[in-house]
Nucleic acid binder design. Structure first.
Length: 478
DNA sequence: TTTTGAGTTGTTCGA
DNA sequence: GTCGAACAACTCAAA
């Protein structure tokens, strides 16, 4: 008969790594303890002002439910607590006599501060942080002179040159539960939106959780990835991976995606997809090294930029009522399913920042609140990119023409007709610029501009000129 | 230290 | 319709 020993308990603090496979924190916790305690803490105060956005909370609710179900199969209930992680994690660790706490590293400034506070409050109990959300350690990718990359190309080249992406870890064979602890009821957190039109559109589109993520990945790698270099630009078809929300919550890891892409094949399309994974990586890297990325322009001269304070235009943009079809289609898709096709994100963002001359921070805030994949790194890096205030140095001639873009990437009009049904009867030729259509064409399509569909908020040529002039002025004021 | 080549996703104009 | 050049000058990364 073996001598009875006190359980060695390890606590895993789940953050944005809501999965069991390829989870180094979980694997380490299982290795470190005879029994483990899985915990998730909803800590809105720590994340302010970047706490989980409205649409995003819907996802979190379902993802936590999924994770809890997976853990229950091991007999290890997921403990849910709401409040300050710096108080709750140490309290629980002490209550069960935990030997170690394991968690994933995150690039968000608030999350770094939160982890530091937890580590300090834990005192003697070590907090072990693991790389769980990226392919590489942020501090390990440096230029030849030890600097931080500020251009994507050389960064990606450096990533490829390393060639040391480890294969994904398997799901642990067993997870023995630690001592019982009190847990909140997930429903009591009220994460589900009270807006009825959200839930319906979201449910039809998404399956949050590790299994849903794996399924999405499998389906993408079985087909669309092979034509990704071209297909990713066609918003009327489902040829992008749609993995972003799953990646944000860590329902699958970049290493798993990378691994699946390698196994799916090689060629130009796969190269483009791999590049997108590295863009995801680069965004997190930038946020890590430039913590002010979500608030302040990376390029200092943009502090002088004279953005227009135009609430009416901003509201029209948010609601998909700008009178520019592809812009409105994108904004309505965003509202209804919490996601927008990447090509259209660029078009809508460019329209706000350039044609309407409204600050990128205003657009960033709306996306943050409405995207299910709202990721602080990707969202702020991308908005800065489109505004021209971030990395990449050719912003001046990049004013997307939403009509040209629509005709080029939604030539058959499937996307606009899907999301702006009041224009559905317009012939292709006029669909992307209804204000240029002859009166009889509009009448036959039951379109009354200014009535059934708005007139364009700005003249596109005038808006473009105004933007170029504003950017020029910004540079001249020295 | 200085030099060199290049910079995710575009548009417009004129030949 | 198609194609190449222009669109500012600057910054980055490496040689």
């Amino acid at each position: 008969m073996a001598q009875m020993q006190p359980d060695r308990v390890a606590l895993i603090w789940f953050r944005q790594d809501l999965r069991l496979a390829d989870n180094p924190a979980l694997t380490a916790a299982v290795a470190a303890g005879q029994s483990i305690l899985p915990l998730y803490v909803l800590d809105d105060d720590a994340a302010a002002p970047w706490q989980t956005g409205g649409a995003h909370r819907w996802w979190l609710h379902h993802s936590l439910r999924s994770l809890a179900a997976s853990l229950r199969k091991f007999g290890a209930p997921l403990l849910l607590r709401r409040g300050s992680a710096a108080a709750i994690v140490p309290e629980m660790a002490r209550a069960v006599g935990a030997a170690e706490v394991h968690a994933g590293t995150l690039p968000e400034p608030w999350a770094r501060a939160q982890a530091a506070a937890v580590a300090a409050a834990l005192g003697d109990i070590p907090l072990r942080l693991h790389r769980a959300s990226t392919l590489f350690d942020f501090d390990s990718i440096k230029t030849k002179t030890g600097g931080v990359y500020g251009v994507y190309g050389p960064f990606a080249k450096a990533c490829h040159a390393r060639g040391d992406i480890a294969p994904p870890l398997p799901t642990p064979d067993r997870i023995d539960p630690g001592p019982a602890q009190p847990s909140d009821d997930l429903d009591s957190w009220g994460l589900l939106s009270t807006k009825p039109d959200w839930a319906a559109g979201f449910r039809d589109t998404w399956t949050p959780g590790e299994a849903g993520a794996a399924d999405r990945l499998t389906r993408f790698m079985a087909g669309p990835v092979c034509g990704y270099d071209i297909g990713r630009n066609v918003p009327g078809k489902h040829l992008t991976s749609m993995l972003s929300p799953h990646l944000h919550w860590g329902e699958l890891s970049p290493a798993q995606v990378w691994d699946a892409a390698q196994k799916a094949g090689s060629g130009p399309a796969h190269d483009v997809f791999n590049g997108e994974i590295l863009w995801h990586e680069f965004s997190a890297y930038l946020l890590w090294h430039f913590p002010h990325l979500p608030e302040k322009p990376l390029r200092p001269d943009f502090a002088r930029m004279q953005w227009r304070d135009d609430t009416a235009s901003l509201r029209a943009w948010e609601r998909g009522q700008t009178g520019v079809p592809i812009v409105d289609a994108g904004m309505r898709q965003l509202w209804q399913i919490g996601w927008m096709h990447n090509r259209v994100r660029m078009i809508t963002a460019s329209f706000l920042v350039k044609h309407l001359l409204v600050s990128w921070q205003a657009g960033e805030a709306w996306f943050w609140d409405t995207l299910v994949d709202g990721d602080l790194a990707a969202n702020s890096a991308s908005w800065q990119w489109i505004a021209g205030s971030g990395i990449d140095s050719q912003p001046f001639f990049r004013v997307f023409n939403p009509v040209t873009q629509g005709e080029k990437f939604d030539a058959a009009g499937a996307y606009v007709r899907r999301w702006v049904p009041e224009l559905a009867a317009l012939p292709d030729r006029w669909l992307h610029a209804p204000w240029t259509a002859p009166a009889d064409v509009l009448a036959r399509a039951d379109v009354a501009l200014g009535d059934t569909y708005p007139k364009p908020l700005v003249d596109l040529a005038a808006g473009r000129d105004r933007a170029l002039a504003a950017f020029k002025t910004m540079r001249q004021v020295a």
